[in-house]
Design a protein around this nucleic acid. Structure first.
Length: 264
DNA sequence: GCAAAATGTCAAG
DNA sequence: TTGACCTTTTGCA
C-alpha cells in the first residue's frame, strides 16, 4: 500500500517490464474502457512517479493513476488469468501483465494536463535531486500542526501516515507543533532523514524506520513488528522510553506519537 | 455472513 | 469537520 516509495517502485518496475513495446490496455470492469481505447496498442515510453502519482506516457497520451487508500497493482509474467472482481485496468505486454484495482484516479491526460497535476505538488524526497527548500517556505509560515503539514501533498509529496508518524518520532518533534515554530535547521535534518528513509523504502519495498539499536534483535531481516517506532503501536511501550504510545485522530487520520520522547 | 480497517483525497456544509 | 468514494482482507459471530 501506497506511500511515495511504493509508487516510485511501481514506476521503475512497469518501465522495465513494458516500456519500448506496444501494450494492450483494457478495462474489464468498464469504468476506464473509453479512455483505455485512447492508448490501447500504443508503445509505452516510460512510467514515472511524482509523490504518490504515477504517469505512464504513450506518446502524446499519459495514463495518470493515483492509488488512493485502497488501490493496488498486481501482475505477473506469461499469459494473464481471466479477469475477476472489479478490475479497472489491465496491461498486457509481450511477456508481462499487470492489473489495477480500486484506484482513486485512473485517467488519460495530455502532457499539459499532467503539468497541471504536478504543479500542485510539493517537492518529492525521491526526486533525483531532492530539495526541501520549497516545502520549508510553506511550513515556516504556517500555524498548522507539523503533523498535518507533512501529509499535505502541496507542501511535500510522497509522505503518508507511516512516514509522517515515524519521521516525527525520529526527530522528537511534538506532532502538534505549529510549522512556523519548527525552525529551518530542524527541517533540514528532517528532510535529509526523509530522503534516506524513503530511498531505503524504495530499495526494499517496505518501510523500516527503527534504528538497529532500538530493535529487540538487530541481526538478519527486520521483523515486521520491529519495523516502526510508533505507527500502529497504540498503548504499546515506546521503544526508547517505555511510555505507552498515544493515538489521536487528526484530520480523520490516525496519528501516533510518544508523549514523552516527543514532548518538545 | 457481515462489519471494520487499510500506507488517500476531495468537496460540501 | 464530515461524508463520500475506490476494493480487498481480516476478524468476529
Amino acid at each position: 500500500m501506497p506511500e511515495g516509495h511504493t509508487l516510485h517502485r511501481l514506476a521503475r518496475d512497469q518501465t522495465a517490464r513494458f516500456a519500448g513495446a506496444p501494450v494492450t490496455v483494457t478495462s474489464p470492469q468498464g469504468r476506464f474502457a473509453e479512455q483505455a481505447a485512447l492508448v490501447d496498442g500504443r508503445v509505452l515510453d516510460a512510467v514515472t512517479a511524482h509523490g504518490k502519482h504515477l504517469f505512464a506516457t504513450f506518446g502524446d497520451r499519459v495514463v495518470h493513476v493515483h492509488l488512493g487508500l485502497f488501490g493496488k497493482y498486481g501482475g505477473g509474467t506469461g499469459n494473464p488469468p481471466p479477469p475477476r472482481g472489479a478490475l479497472r485496468m489491465r496491461w498486457v505486454g509481450s511477456d508481462a501483465w499487470t492489473d489495477l484495482r480500486g484506484p482513486t484516479a485512473c485517467e488519460v491526460l495530455t502532457p499539459s494536463e499532467v503539468e497541471v497535476v504536478v504543479a500542485r505538488l510539493g517537492p518529492d524526497p525521491l526526486a533525483r535531486r531532492p530539495d526541501g527548500t520549497a516545502a520549508y517556505v510553506r511550513i515556516g509560515r504556517s500555524r498548522a500542526p507539523i503533523a498535518a503539514l507533512l501529509m499535505d501533498q502541496a507542501v511535500l509529496s510522497g509522505v503518508g501516515n507511516v512516514y509522517r508518524a515515524e519521521l516525527l518520532f525520529r526527530h522528537q518533534v511534538p506532532p502538534f507543533l505549529p510549522g512556523r515554530d519548527l525552525g529551518p535547521l530542524r527541517w533540514t535534518a528532517m528532510w535529509a532523514d526523509l530522503v534516506t528513509l524513503m530511498r531505503a523504502g524504495l530499495r526494499s519495498g517496505r518501510i523500516v524506520t527503527t534504528r538497529p539499536e532500538d530493535r529487540d534483535r538487530s541481526g538478519g531481516r527486520v521483523r515486521q513488528q520491529d519495523a516502526h517506532y510508533v505507527y500502529r503501536r497504540t498503548d504499546l511501550p515506546c521503544r526508547v522510553c517505555g511510555t505507552p504510545v498515544a493515538m489521536q485522530l487528526l484530520a480523520a487520520r490516525k496519528l501516533y506519537w510518544c508523549p514523552v520522547c516527543q514532548s518538545g
